[in-house]
Amino acid sequence: MAISIAFWLFAAAFGASALGGVLGMASGIFIVPILILLFGVDMHVAVGASLISVIACSCGSAAPFLRSRLTNVRLAIVLETATTLGALTGVFLIGIVSTAFLYALFAAILALSAQQMLARRREKTSGAEWPTRNWATTLDLHSSFPDRVLGREIVYQVGHVPLGLVLMYGAGLISALLGIGSGVLKIPAMDTALRLPIKVSSATSNFMIGVTATASAGAYFVRGDIDADIAGPVALGSVVGALVGARLLTGLPADKLRIFFVIVLVLLAIQMLMMAFGIQLL
C-alpha cells in the first residue's frame, strides 16, 4: 500500500479522535463511516480496523481515570461478563446478518448519538432509594470517589444491576457488529439503570470498552478480517489523537463543535441509511 494512504488513514483517525476528545466522546463511531465512505473499505474490514482503534483508545486513556479513582473496577468486571457475552453473540451473527442490515443499524446508532449529543446529560443519582438487599450490595459494588471541585469524597450507591447487565449485553452485541465502543449505549445504561455519578459512569464505561472490543477483535483477527495495512495507521492515529489532540484543541468552542458534530452525525446517518437501500451518493 502506498505511504500516502497510510498517512491519510492516520490523519483521518487522528482528526476524528482529537475532535471527539474535546467533547469527551469516543471516535469509534466515526472510524467505520470514514473508512467506508472516504477510503472505499469493505464493511467487515472497516469494523475490524475500528475495533483495534477502540481497544487502543480505551487502554490508552484508562490510566488517569484509574489513578483519580473514578473507575469502579469491581462494577466493570461484573458488567464485562455481559458485554463480552454480547460481543460473542455478535461474532456468531456477523456471518448471518446482511451488510444492508448493518448499514441500517449503524444509521440508527448514529442518529441516537446525534440525539444524545443535543440532550445534555444530567445527574440522576440523587433521590434514589435502593433496597438494602440487592445485587449491588451483595457484590459490594458501592464505592466513593474524590471530587476535586468540592474537595471531598463523594459516596455513591450502585443501582439496578440486573437491568444494567441486560443493557450491557446489548451494548456488547452492537460493539461486535459495528466495531464501535458502544459508549452511546453504555452511558445511558449507566446513567439510568445503575444511577452512577457522571464522572464514574464515563470512566467505568471507557474502561470496559477495551475488554468488550477484544472479545470480538480476537475472533476477527483469527478469521483474517483485520487488515494490518488499514488497522495499523488507524489505531495509531486514534490513540495519538486521543492522547495529545484534545490537549491541542482545548481552545475550540465546545458549543459550536457540538452543533458541528450533530450535523455530521445526522448526515452520516442519512448516508448509511441510503447505503442500506443500495444508494451511494459520495
Binding site: 480505551s58 477495551g210 475488554v211 483485520i226
Partner: peptide, 20 residues
Amino acid sequence: GLDLVNTGIVLFILLPVARV
C-alpha cells in the same frame, strides 16, 4: 514491516486480556 504492524495489533488485542 507488515509483520511488525500485525504484532502491534496482537499486542493491543492481548492488552485487555492481560488486564483481566
